[in-house]
Simulated assay, not measured.
Amino acid sequence: MAAVTDQMAAPGVPAIRKTPKGTFDVIFRNASFLAALFVLVLLAGIMLSMVIGGWPAFREFGFGFITSSVWDTQREQYGAWPAIVGTLSTALIALLIGVPLSLGIAVYLTQLAPPWFKQPVSTAVELLAAVPSIIYGMWGLFVFVPLFAAYVQIPLSNIVEGIPVVGTVLYSRSPSGLGILTAGIILAFMIIPFIASITRDMLDQIPSVLRESAYGIGATTWEVVRHVLVPQAGVSIIGAIMLGLGRALGETMAVTFVVGNANRLSASIMDPGSTIASRIANEFNEAMGLQLNSLIALGCILFFVTFVVLVIARVLVARVKSF
Protein backbone atom coordinates (compact mmCIF):
# COMPACT_ATOMS: atom_id res chain seq x y z
CA MET A 1 0.00 0.00 0.00
CA ALA A 2 2.87 2.34 0.81
CA ALA A 3 4.39 1.60 -2.60
CA VAL A 4 1.10 2.44 -4.33
CA THR A 5 0.90 5.69 -2.38
CA ASP A 6 4.44 6.58 -3.41
CA GLN A 7 3.68 5.86 -7.06
CA MET A 8 0.47 7.93 -7.02
CA ALA A 9 2.22 10.97 -5.54
CA ALA A 10 2.98 13.70 -8.05
CA PRO A 11 6.61 14.47 -8.85
CA GLY A 12 8.10 16.72 -6.20
CA VAL A 13 5.17 16.14 -3.80
CA PRO A 14 5.96 13.90 -0.79
CA ALA A 15 3.76 10.89 -0.20
CA ILE A 16 1.28 10.79 2.68
CA ARG A 17 3.24 10.12 5.86
CA LYS A 18 2.12 7.51 8.34
CA THR A 19 1.40 8.34 11.96
CA PRO A 20 4.75 8.65 13.76
CA LYS A 21 5.64 5.67 15.92
CA GLY A 22 9.24 6.49 16.77
CA THR A 23 10.61 6.73 20.28
CA PHE A 24 11.50 10.41 19.90
CA ASP A 25 7.98 11.24 18.71
CA VAL A 26 6.48 9.58 21.78
CA ILE A 27 8.90 11.40 24.08
CA PHE A 28 8.16 14.71 22.37
CA ARG A 29 4.40 14.18 22.63
CA ASN A 30 4.56 13.27 26.32
CA ALA A 31 6.93 16.15 27.12
CA SER A 32 4.58 18.60 25.42
CA PHE A 33 1.63 17.21 27.35
CA LEU A 34 3.52 17.52 30.66
CA ALA A 35 4.45 21.12 29.85
CA ALA A 36 0.80 21.98 29.23
CA LEU A 37 -0.29 20.08 32.34
CA PHE A 38 2.32 21.91 34.41
CA VAL A 39 0.61 25.24 33.65
CA LEU A 40 -2.74 23.93 34.90
CA VAL A 41 -1.21 22.40 38.03
CA LEU A 42 0.70 25.62 38.80
CA LEU A 43 -2.44 27.74 38.35
CA ALA A 44 -4.49 25.40 40.54
CA GLY A 45 -1.77 25.46 43.21
CA ILE A 46 -1.68 29.26 43.26
CA MET A 47 -5.47 29.49 43.49
CA LEU A 48 -5.69 26.89 46.23
CA SER A 49 -2.93 28.41 48.36
CA MET A 50 -4.44 31.89 48.13
CA VAL A 51 -7.94 30.67 48.97
CA ILE A 52 -6.60 28.77 51.99
CA GLY A 53 -4.56 31.77 53.15
CA GLY A 54 -7.41 34.25 52.71
CA TRP A 55 -10.23 32.05 54.00
CA PRO A 56 -9.98 33.22 57.65
CA ALA A 57 -10.65 36.79 56.50
CA PHE A 58 -13.61 35.77 54.33
CA ARG A 59 -14.95 33.66 57.19
CA GLU A 60 -14.55 36.47 59.71
CA PHE A 61 -16.04 39.32 57.68
CA GLY A 62 -18.09 37.51 55.03
CA PHE A 63 -19.24 39.54 52.05
CA GLY A 64 -18.65 42.65 54.16
CA PHE A 65 -14.94 42.24 53.52
CA ILE A 66 -15.56 43.32 49.92
CA THR A 67 -18.03 46.13 50.65
CA SER A 68 -16.43 47.59 53.79
CA SER A 69 -14.20 50.68 53.65
CA VAL A 70 -12.61 50.21 57.08
CA TRP A 71 -8.98 49.10 57.37
CA ASP A 72 -8.05 49.34 61.04
CA THR A 73 -5.15 47.20 62.21
CA GLN A 74 -5.72 48.15 65.87
CA ARG A 75 -9.30 46.87 65.99
CA GLU A 76 -8.69 44.04 63.52
CA GLN A 77 -11.29 45.40 61.09
CA TYR A 78 -10.52 45.07 57.41
CA GLY A 79 -12.37 46.00 54.24
CA ALA A 80 -11.27 45.80 50.62
CA TRP A 81 -13.59 48.26 48.86
CA PRO A 82 -11.25 51.31 48.64
CA ALA A 83 -8.44 49.13 47.26
CA ILE A 84 -10.77 47.50 44.73
CA VAL A 85 -12.09 50.85 43.52
CA GLY A 86 -8.55 52.24 43.32
CA THR A 87 -7.35 49.25 41.31
CA LEU A 88 -10.18 49.50 38.80
CA SER A 89 -9.94 53.30 38.58
CA THR A 90 -6.21 53.43 37.89
CA ALA A 91 -6.47 50.63 35.31
CA LEU A 92 -9.36 52.38 33.54
CA ILE A 93 -7.48 55.68 33.43
CA ALA A 94 -4.42 53.88 32.08
CA LEU A 95 -6.49 52.33 29.27
CA LEU A 96 -8.20 55.62 28.38
CA ILE A 97 -4.82 57.30 28.00
CA GLY A 98 -2.65 54.44 26.81
CA VAL A 99 -4.81 52.71 24.19
CA PRO A 100 -5.29 55.72 21.84
CA LEU A 101 -1.60 56.62 22.11
CA SER A 102 -0.54 53.02 21.47
CA LEU A 103 -2.77 52.65 18.42
CA GLY A 104 -1.57 55.99 17.10
CA ILE A 105 2.07 54.93 17.50
CA ALA A 106 1.43 51.60 15.76
CA VAL A 107 -0.45 53.17 12.85
CA TYR A 108 2.16 55.87 12.39
CA LEU A 109 5.06 53.41 12.41
CA THR A 110 3.40 51.08 9.90
CA GLN A 111 1.69 53.57 7.58
CA LEU A 112 3.11 57.06 7.83
CA ALA A 113 6.62 57.14 9.30
CA PRO A 114 9.56 57.71 6.92
CA PRO A 115 12.17 54.92 6.99
CA TRP A 116 14.80 57.08 8.70
CA PHE A 117 12.42 57.81 11.60
CA LYS A 118 10.66 54.46 11.92
CA GLN A 119 13.55 52.45 13.34
CA PRO A 120 14.55 54.87 16.13
CA VAL A 121 10.96 55.18 17.34
CA SER A 122 10.45 51.40 17.21
CA THR A 123 13.63 50.88 19.23
CA ALA A 124 12.56 53.50 21.77
CA VAL A 125 9.18 51.79 22.23
CA GLU A 126 10.86 48.45 22.84
CA LEU A 127 13.30 50.00 25.31
CA LEU A 128 10.38 51.46 27.28
CA ALA A 129 9.01 47.94 27.69
CA ALA A 130 12.31 46.84 29.25
CA VAL A 131 12.39 49.58 31.91
CA PRO A 132 11.77 48.07 35.40
CA SER A 133 8.58 49.16 37.12
CA ILE A 134 10.46 50.59 40.10
CA ILE A 135 12.22 53.01 37.74
CA TYR A 136 8.83 54.24 36.53
CA GLY A 137 7.81 54.67 40.16
CA MET A 138 10.93 56.61 41.14
CA TRP A 139 10.69 58.82 38.07
CA GLY A 140 7.02 59.40 38.78
CA LEU A 141 7.63 60.32 42.43
CA PHE A 142 10.66 62.59 42.03
CA VAL A 143 10.04 64.11 38.57
CA PHE A 144 6.45 63.73 37.40
CA VAL A 145 4.62 64.29 40.72
CA PRO A 146 6.09 67.77 41.45
CA LEU A 147 5.48 68.91 37.86
CA PHE A 148 1.96 67.49 37.84
CA ALA A 149 1.11 69.23 41.12
CA ALA A 150 2.50 72.60 40.06
CA TYR A 151 1.26 72.76 36.48
CA VAL A 152 -1.89 70.60 36.50
CA GLN A 153 -3.43 69.98 39.91
CA ILE A 154 -3.19 73.48 41.38
CA PRO A 155 -4.32 75.41 38.25
CA LEU A 156 -7.04 72.88 37.47
CA SER A 157 -8.35 72.92 41.05
CA ASN A 158 -8.61 76.71 40.92
CA ILE A 159 -10.57 76.52 37.67
CA VAL A 160 -13.05 73.75 38.52
CA GLU A 161 -13.67 74.64 42.18
CA GLY A 162 -17.38 74.97 42.76
CA ILE A 163 -18.42 73.59 39.36
CA PRO A 164 -20.96 70.74 39.71
CA VAL A 165 -19.77 67.24 38.80
CA VAL A 166 -16.58 68.42 37.07
CA GLY A 167 -15.43 70.18 40.21
CA THR A 168 -16.18 67.09 42.27
CA VAL A 169 -14.15 64.80 40.01
CA LEU A 170 -11.17 67.07 39.28
CA TYR A 171 -10.84 69.22 42.40
CA SER A 172 -7.97 68.37 44.74
CA ARG A 173 -8.17 69.34 48.41
CA SER A 174 -4.42 68.82 48.89
CA PRO A 175 -2.66 69.14 45.51
CA SER A 176 0.50 67.21 46.31
CA GLY A 177 0.70 65.50 42.93
CA LEU A 178 -0.06 62.07 44.39
CA GLY A 179 -3.36 60.44 43.59
CA ILE A 180 -5.43 58.07 41.50
CA LEU A 181 -4.99 60.09 38.29
CA THR A 182 -1.23 60.25 38.74
CA ALA A 183 -1.05 56.48 39.18
CA GLY A 184 -3.24 55.99 36.10
CA ILE A 185 -0.95 58.19 34.01
CA ILE A 186 2.17 56.32 35.13
CA LEU A 187 0.43 53.02 34.34
CA ALA A 188 -0.45 54.36 30.90
CA PHE A 189 3.24 55.03 30.25
CA MET A 190 3.99 51.45 31.29
CA ILE A 191 1.40 49.70 29.11
CA ILE A 192 1.97 51.78 25.96
CA PRO A 193 5.09 49.83 24.86
CA PHE A 194 3.30 46.46 25.09
CA ILE A 195 0.14 47.49 23.26
CA ALA A 196 2.03 49.52 20.65
CA SER A 197 4.60 46.80 19.89
CA ILE A 198 2.04 44.01 19.48
CA THR A 199 -0.30 46.17 17.39
CA ARG A 200 2.58 47.31 15.18
CA ASP A 201 3.67 43.74 14.54
CA MET A 202 0.12 42.69 13.68
CA LEU A 203 -0.36 45.60 11.29
CA ASP A 204 2.96 44.78 9.61
CA GLN A 205 1.77 41.21 8.96
CA ILE A 206 -1.35 42.28 7.05
CA PRO A 207 -0.78 41.54 3.33
CA SER A 208 0.20 44.70 1.49
CA VAL A 209 -2.13 43.79 -1.37
CA LEU A 210 -5.11 44.68 0.85
CA ARG A 211 -3.79 48.17 1.49
CA GLU A 212 -2.76 48.68 -2.12
CA SER A 213 -6.19 47.60 -3.31
CA ALA A 214 -7.87 50.07 -0.96
CA TYR A 215 -5.62 52.89 -2.11
CA GLY A 216 -6.24 51.84 -5.70
CA ILE A 217 -9.99 52.44 -5.43
CA GLY A 218 -9.43 55.90 -3.95
CA ALA A 219 -9.45 55.26 -0.19
CA THR A 220 -7.69 57.74 2.05
CA THR A 221 -5.17 56.74 4.72
CA TRP A 222 -7.84 57.06 7.41
CA GLU A 223 -10.24 54.87 5.42
CA VAL A 224 -7.55 52.24 4.89
CA VAL A 225 -6.81 52.16 8.61
CA ARG A 226 -10.48 52.20 9.63
CA HIS A 227 -11.89 49.73 7.12
CA VAL A 228 -8.92 47.49 6.25
CA LEU A 229 -6.24 47.39 8.93
CA VAL A 230 -8.32 47.54 12.11
CA PRO A 231 -10.81 44.80 11.04
CA GLN A 232 -7.95 42.55 9.93
CA ALA A 233 -5.99 42.99 13.16
CA GLY A 234 -8.98 43.41 15.48
CA VAL A 235 -8.47 40.18 17.41
CA SER A 236 -4.78 40.89 18.00
CA ILE A 237 -5.50 44.47 19.05
CA ILE A 238 -8.00 43.27 21.65
CA GLY A 239 -5.44 40.77 22.92
CA ALA A 240 -2.81 43.50 23.19
CA ILE A 241 -5.19 45.76 25.10
CA MET A 242 -6.08 42.98 27.53
CA LEU A 243 -2.39 42.26 28.05
CA GLY A 244 -1.87 45.90 28.94
CA LEU A 245 -4.90 45.83 31.24
CA GLY A 246 -3.52 42.77 33.01
CA ARG A 247 -0.28 44.60 33.76
CA ALA A 248 -2.14 47.70 34.89
CA LEU A 249 -4.28 45.70 37.32
CA GLY A 250 -1.35 43.90 38.91
CA GLU A 251 1.33 46.61 38.88
CA THR A 252 2.79 47.12 42.34
CA MET A 253 5.89 49.23 42.87
CA ALA A 254 5.23 52.05 40.42
CA VAL A 255 1.70 52.54 41.75
CA THR A 256 2.86 52.34 45.37
CA PHE A 257 5.20 55.28 44.79
CA VAL A 258 2.62 57.67 43.31
CA VAL A 259 -0.92 56.64 44.34
CA GLY A 260 -0.70 58.21 47.82
CA ASN A 261 -1.60 55.01 49.73
CA ALA A 262 -4.60 56.52 51.51
CA ASN A 263 -7.29 54.11 52.64
CA ARG A 264 -10.27 56.24 51.71
CA LEU A 265 -12.81 56.69 48.96
CA SER A 266 -12.99 60.03 47.21
CA ALA A 267 -15.10 61.26 44.32
CA SER A 268 -12.08 63.13 42.98
CA ILE A 269 -9.49 61.28 40.93
CA MET A 270 -6.96 63.89 42.05
CA ASP A 271 -7.03 62.72 45.66
CA PRO A 272 -4.72 60.00 47.05
CA GLY A 273 -6.02 56.45 47.18
CA SER A 274 -4.75 52.88 47.16
CA THR A 275 -4.86 49.74 45.06
CA ILE A 276 -4.84 46.08 45.99
CA ALA A 277 -1.24 45.67 44.90
CA SER A 278 -0.03 48.78 46.72
CA ARG A 279 -1.84 47.77 49.92
CA ILE A 280 -0.19 44.34 49.86
CA ALA A 281 3.24 45.84 49.12
CA ASN A 282 2.98 48.33 51.98
CA GLU A 283 1.78 45.99 54.71
CA PHE A 284 2.73 42.42 53.84
CA ASN A 285 6.20 42.55 55.36
CA GLU A 286 4.92 43.33 58.86
CA ALA A 287 1.49 41.67 58.70
CA MET A 288 0.50 38.98 61.17
CA GLY A 289 -2.61 37.01 62.00
CA LEU A 290 -5.87 38.31 60.57
CA GLN A 291 -4.13 41.20 58.83
CA LEU A 292 -1.99 38.75 56.87
CA ASN A 293 -5.09 36.70 56.00
CA SER A 294 -6.83 39.87 54.83
CA LEU A 295 -3.93 40.77 52.56
CA ILE A 296 -3.96 37.30 51.03
CA ALA A 297 -7.73 37.68 50.60
CA LEU A 298 -7.03 40.89 48.69
CA GLY A 299 -4.78 38.85 46.43
CA CYS A 300 -7.65 36.41 45.86
CA ILE A 301 -9.90 39.28 44.84
CA LEU A 302 -7.27 40.61 42.44
CA PHE A 303 -6.91 37.14 40.98
CA PHE A 304 -10.67 36.95 40.47
CA VAL A 305 -10.75 40.40 38.83
CA THR A 306 -8.00 39.34 36.44
CA PHE A 307 -9.90 36.15 35.64
CA VAL A 308 -13.03 38.17 34.84
CA VAL A 309 -10.98 40.41 32.54
CA LEU A 310 -9.67 37.30 30.76
CA VAL A 311 -13.21 35.99 30.27
CA ILE A 312 -14.32 39.33 28.86
CA ALA A 313 -11.35 39.31 26.50
CA ARG A 314 -12.28 35.83 25.27
CA VAL A 315 -15.86 36.95 24.65
CA LEU A 316 -14.72 40.03 22.73
CA VAL A 317 -12.31 37.99 20.63
CA ALA A 318 -15.03 35.47 19.81
CA ARG A 319 -17.43 38.23 18.77
CA VAL A 320 -14.80 39.92 16.60
CA LYS A 321 -13.98 36.62 14.91
CA SER A 322 -17.64 35.89 14.24
CA PHE A 323 -18.11 39.41 12.84
Rank of each mutant, 00 (worst) to 15 (best):
V26D: 09
F28C: 00
F28H: 06
F33H: 11
L34I: 15
A35T: 14
A35E: 08
A36L: 11
V39G: 09
V39P: 05
V41A: 14
L42C: 10
L42Q: 03
L42G: 08
A44W: 00
A44Q: 01
G45C: 14
G45N: 09
L48Y: 12
V51R: 02
V51C: 02
P56C: 11
A57E: 10
R59Q: 12
E60Q: 10
E60P: 01
E60S: 11
F61M: 07
G62N: 10
G62H: 08
G64S: 13
F65P: 08
F65L: 09
I66G: 00
T67G: 04
S69L: 01
W71V: 00
D72G: 02
Q74H: 06
Y78G: 00
G79V: 08
I84A: 10
G86W: 09
T87A: 09
L88Y: 06
T90R: 11
T90A: 07
A91S: 14
L92H: 03
A94G: 12
L96Y: 09
L96A: 13
G98F: 13
L101K: 06
S102M: 06
S102Q: 05
L103G: 04
G104N: 13
I105F: 13
V107Y: 11
Y108P: 02
Y108A: 10
L109N: 03
A113N: 01
P114S: 10
P115G: 01
W116Y: 12
F117K: 08
F117P: 04
V121L: 14
S122F: 08
S122I: 01
S122M: 07
T123K: 04
T123A: 01
A124R: 03
E126Q: 12
L127T: 03
L128M: 14
